[in-house]
C-alpha cells in the first residue's frame, strides 16, 4: 500500500465519494458497501465518543440531533490524537456557530462545563491544600498569599443558568421549569476521586479567577468586592477550603510594592 493509496483510503472515509480504486472482494470489483463498513465505523465511533463526553448536551437536544451535530463536527474537526479523552474540546465553539442550534444560546456553556468535568476527571491526583496550613498563617501575612491551582480546577461563567441546566440534564437534579433565568458561575475540581461542581456567586467567580491567575488573596478579594458589592469573603474562603481548588500557598513578598499589579 503506497502512502498515496492510504491517503485516498483515509480521505474517502469522511465523505460520500465512491470507494477508492484498488479495493477488491471475492464477488465484486466495486465493494462500495464493504468500504462503507469502515466509513460507518469511523463516524459512528467518533460520534459515540462525543456523546459519552457530552451526555447533558445530548439530553438537551435529543440523540438524533446530537448525532447529526456531532457528525458535522467530526467531519470538520477529526481527532488529531489516538487519545480521545480530550477529543471535542472545540465542540462548544463549533456548536455556538452551528446554525441549526442557534436558538439554544446556553448550550455551548453547558458543554464547556462538561469539558471542565472531563478534564478534572482525568487530571493529575494531587492532595488539596490542608486548611490547617492556612489557619497557621500569621494574620498579618494573609493578604500576600498566592495560591497554586489544583490541576483539576476550572472556573466557568455564563450569562445563562449553565449550572442549573447541566444539573437537570446530568441526573443531578429533577427537570423543572427554570423561573430564575440569570447568569451562573461554577468552580469545578476533583480534590480526591469525585468531580465536584460548586456554584459560585458572580463575585466569587471574579475572586477565584484572580486567584488562579496568580493574584494575592488581598488583590483577589478587592477585585471581587469592587466589581460585586455583595461579595462575601468568608463564604468564598469556605468554598476555597472545601472545594480543594488549590494545592499549596506561597507568600508573595512583592505585595507591598505599590507597582505590583
Amino acid at each position: 500500500m503506497s502512502a498515496t493509496f492510504q491517503s485516498a483510503f483515509a480521505s474517502g472515509l469522511f465523505g460520500t465519494t465512491p470507494a477508492p480504486v484498488g479495493l477488491a472482494a471475492w464477488n465484486t470489483a466495486t465493494p462500495e458497501r464493504r468500504y462503507g463498513v469502515y466509513r460507518n465505523n469511523v463516524t459512528a465511533s467518533l460520534t459515540t465518543a462525543l456523546a459519552s463526553r457530552f451526555p447533558a448536551a445530548e439530553n438537551i437536544v435529543g440523540p438524533d440531533f446530537f448525532r447529526a451535530m456531532a457528525r458535522a463536527f467530526v467531519a470538520a474537526h477529526p481527532p488529531r490524537s489516538p487519545v480521545l479523552l480530550a477529543y471535542g474540546d472545540e465542540f462548544p465553539d463549533f456548536v455556538a456557530a452551528f446554525a441549526p442550534a442557534r436558538d439554544l444560546v446556553y448550550l455551548p456553556d453547558v458543554m464547556r462545563l462538561e469539558i471542565a468535568r472531563g478534564q478534572a476527571y482525568h487530571a493529575a491526583d494531587i492532595p488539596p491544600l490542608d486548611p490547617t496550613v492556612l489557619a497557621a498563617i500569621d494574620p498579618a501575612r494573609l493578604g500576600a498569599l498566592v495560591f497554586t491551582p489544583h490541576p483539576t480546577l476550572s472556573i466557568l461563567s455564563s450569562p445563562y443558568p449553565m449550572v442549573t441546566i447541566w444539573a437537570m440534564n446530568a441526573g443531578e437534579r429533577p427537570l423543572v421549569p427554570i423561573d430564575d433565568w440569570r447568569d451562573e458561575h461554577a468552580l469545578v475540581a476533583r480534590p480526591h476521586l469525585a468531580v465536584e461542581v460548586t456554584p459560585l456567586s458572580p463575585g466569587g467567580a471574579v475572586f477565584f479567577r484572580r486567584l488562579t491567575t496568580g493574584a494575592t488573596l488581598a488583590t483577589a478579594a478587592e477585585s471581587a468586592m469592587s466589581e460585586h458589592s455583595g461579595f462575601d469573603l468568608s463564604d468564598n474562603l469556605a468554598v476555597l477550603l472545601r472545594s480543594g481548588a488549590f494545592t499549596a500557598i506561597n507568600q508573595d513578598d512583592s505585595d507591598e510594592n505599590p507597582n505590583h499589579a
Binding site: N40, T43, I60, G62, F65, A99, P100, L104, I165
Partner: peptide, 25 residues
C-alpha cells in the same frame, strides 16, 4: 466495528427534541 448504521441526516431539517423543548426560558 459497529453494527448500527449511522445514517447521514440533513441537520438543517432536524430540530432539537430533547429536554430543550420543555425547558422554560
Amino acid at each position: 466495528g459497529t453494527s448500527k448504521i449511522d445514517y447521514q441526516q440533513n441537520v438543517f431539517k432536524l430540530v432539537p427534541k430533547g429536554t430543550c423543548v420543555s425547558m422554560k426560558t
